[in-house]
Every structure is written in C-alpha cells, then in structure tokens.
Design a protein around this nucleic acid. Structure first.
Lengths: 232, 232
DNA sequence: GCGCCTGCGTTCCTATAGGATTTGTGCCAT
DNA sequence: ATGGCACAAATCCTATAGGAACGCAGGCGC
C-alpha cells in the first residue's frame, strides 16, 4: 500500500532497516508509556490495525512481543488487554525486584563508566531539575521521561546485556506505575536530591557508595509511594 | 438441535485453551532447550511451518515471542537465527546477572517457603543425584533438566512475579549454555553438594545462609566453567 | 583472473479471506 | 420477572496469495 516509498534505498538509510511490525511495536509502546492506553483497556488487533492503517498481521506480531514485557496480557481467543493497575502487592514486588537489580547496576556502571556515559547521566539529572512538574500530565511528562532515562542509562552503563534486559522489563512497569500509580509528582525535590547523590557517587568513582545511594533512593521511593497511596 | 457442545466440552478442558501459536512456541522452546536447534542455525519461518504442518502465521507469532527471550535473534528482512554460542564475556555477564538475582531469590524463597515447595526442591535434588550422567546427550539430559528445575523452583517460591520473569529469561540462557558450553558434566559431585547445601539452608529456615550458599554455588559454577573452557 | 551485474530461487513481509469463537441482544418459556 | 436459548455482530485465529528483498550462481567485460 505505501507504494510511493517501496524501499529505503534513499541516501543513508539506517544500518538496520525496520519493517512495519517494528513501527507498530514502537507506536504501541509509546502509547503505553505515555498513558494513551490506560490499564485494563482492551487492545483489539483489528481495531489497532484500522487505527494504524495496516493489516492485522503486523499488529499481531507487535503485540506478541509486547506480551513478553508484561505491559499487555493475552487471553487465548479473547484478545489482548493493557495490564491492570498495580495493586499494593504488585508495587511491593516491583520495588523488591528493583532493589535486587538496580544497586548492582549502579555499582557496575560506576566502575565501568565512560566520560560520555557520565555526561548523559548529568544531563538526565539536569533535565529532572529543569523539567516542569505542573499538574497536567503533558506538563510533567518530561520529568517522568528524565527519571526513567536516568535509571536506564545506569543499566546500560553497567555493560551487562542480561542485567540491561532485566532492567528494561522492570523499567516499563516502573514507568507505567509512575503514570498510573495514582499519585502525581509530590516528591520531586527529594527524588532529585537522591538522584544527585547517586550521580555524585558515580562522578566520584566510588562504586560501593553509588550502590548504597541507589538502594537508598529506591527504598525511599517505595516508602513515599506506600505512604502516598495507602489504598488498594 | 440442542448441540451446545462447541468443541472443548470434553471432560475438564484446560482452564485456558491454547491456540496453534502456543503449541508452536512450546515446540520451538523445547527444541531450543534440548539442543535440537543448534546455536547459529537459521530458523526459517516457512521451513518451520512446513515441518510443523501449520501456516507461517503462527510460526511468526511464536518467533516474535521467543525473540524477547534472547534465544533467537531476528534481522529485519533476513529472518531468525538461534542465538550464537556464548563467548567468554557473555558467560561472565550471565554469571554476574545470576549472582545479583539468584541469591535474592534464595533468601526470599526461604522465608516464604511452603511445604509443597520444599518437597519439590528435595525431589529436584534427589533427581540430580540419581540422574545418569553418561556421555551421550540423551543420557544426562535429565540431569540438566533437574538442575534447571531446582533453580526455577526457587525463583518461583520467591513469590515475586518480576524476579521470576527475570530469572526465567536467564534460565533459558543458562540451560542453553549447559547444553552448548562445550563442557559436559564434569562437576556433578560438587554441584550436587552445593545444591544440597542450599536445600539444607532452606529446610533449616535460614534465609541468609540460603542466599550465601546460592552465591557460593553460582561462583563455583563460574569458576569451574571458566577453568574448563579457557578457549574463546 | 577479477569484478560486476543479471537472473532466479528462496525467504521474508504484508494484505486479504474465511472459519471459529466470544460477546451482546432479544425472545420465549417458566 | 428471571433464566435460558437463538441469533447477530465483532473479534480472534489460521491459511493463502502476492509483492519485495535477499543470496547465489552464471555470464559478461576488463
């Protein structure tokens, strides 16, 4: 159907070309990560195909991949739904998992840090500080993005493909919780200070301290969230 | 005609029915896990469809899910291949990741252990002891299966969906390494003793010791494997 | 001989069609 | 009024067809 551009043979196509299913995957992931698809909502294959103006086949493939991230769930012969909102137990489990992985990432990232990596981290913290944190979602969206980016960069700098994959799975869930956890951004000052503490330890080249600061950060995030949202 | 028996009206159909793509997924996973599909081998969509006597569509869906486990890799417009053999660095990274997750699993599993769970663990260790460890693959296949099962059970008993998901991703890679790491089973006696030590700590209800024993086990596995397979 | 290109088979990728299943609605019997 | 059945629409699931890209072999020019 997109006959006008049958091939990416134009100058400088990406090193690895993408197919339709990849674009669908990215579109769905973006919609999940920025709240356009709400927890519990049905994700119809045919419906998505109509909306994206593609056939159901690539949508099916993209959803099959997304299922493995835990962000959508499938019931045979019934279809896909966005994973439901976190319960209090889910959140506790997520934080427990973060506590077992992120401090390790921080320690490894610190000992293997590159100058570029450190710059990127500094930029993320800077973005956190300058990001608006107003009431509407569109406002503090960039704040959440910078938060997620900070942790993702550390996982990447740890230079371990398996830990990175494990974190990325968690990261999607964390971001979904940030969006739908019920609480807005009520702890920006403290969170920024904790991020800064991690960054300082990294810049100082102290792996153990970086790990400790990360542990402290995640524990405090857990404490604040559990206090803010006692319901459920 | 009062024929209200759609199809699954047989006695006790599974709570969640399966579709073709699920069967294809399981078949491929089994072939990957028992060595029938060797690292680097091409996994043709059409070819698999012919072999399994289904259309390419469910095969494509199954492979899309498998890609996210890291056991197969996809190159756009070129197809899927079984992930290549582990390099020495890959193995080191895998063990590093295990060391950050499995001791935590062991600690949590110990404090949350159920009697049934403990029985299953005991059975796994028993199976390890009695499994043949002869030279041919078919011989020590059950040994590898019991090994993987032991660790998987602990991850399940930890009662944390995220840690379980993280472990399962690692577990597939671990099993693939056990199969294709180049070394057969040269350390059964020591490995069994280490498993027994973990089990004893679990049975004794000492979470910290369980975690320590697990750490020790993984570290020793790493040490033995690095010594056995110095190449690469 | 070496490099390039041209043709062909294989494979991937997307769209489409049709069967199977679930869900929602309305009617009928109790 | 309530429960159950039948019918209809929407959706999922699988198969199939055809276009597009890749890999390879063979031939041509240098």
């Amino acid at each position: 159907m997109p006959a006008p551009s049958p091939s990416a043979a134009r100058a400088g196509f990406p090193v690895s070309r993408q197919v339709l299913a990849d674009h669908v995957y990215e579109a769905l992931l973006e919609w999940l990560m920025d709240g356009r698809l709400e927890p519990g909502a049905a994700v119809s294959i045919d419906g998505m195909a109509r909306e994206l103006d593609v056939s159901p086949t690539p949508v099916r493939e993209a959803l099959a991949r997304l299922e493995h991230t835990g962000m959508v769930r499938r019931v045979a012969l019934k279809g896909y739904r966005v994973a439901p909102v976190f319960t209090r137990e889910d959140f506790a489990e997520l934080m427990e998992a973060r506590l077992s992985i992120e401090p390790v990432n921080a320690r490894l990232a610190c000992s293997r840090m590159t100058p570029d990596g450190l710059d990127a981290l500094k930029q993320a913290v800077e973005d956190l500080k300058t990001a608006p944190r107003g009431g509407t979602f569109a406002e503090y969206r960039s704040y959440l993005e910078a938060d997620e980016r900070f942790h993702q960069l550390i996982a990447a700098q740890a230079n371990n493909q398996f830990l990175l994959a494990a974190y990325n799975t968690l990261g999607g869930q964390i971001q979904r919780f940030r969006l739908f956890g019920g609480v807005g951004i009520t702890d920006a000052e403290q969170a920024i200070a904790e991020h800064q503490a991690v960054l300082d330890a990294m810049a100082g080249g102290d792996p153990e301290k970086a790990a400790d600061m990360m542990t402290e950060h995640v524990e405090k995030v857990r404490g604040r969230a559990m206090a803010d949202a006692p319901g459920d």
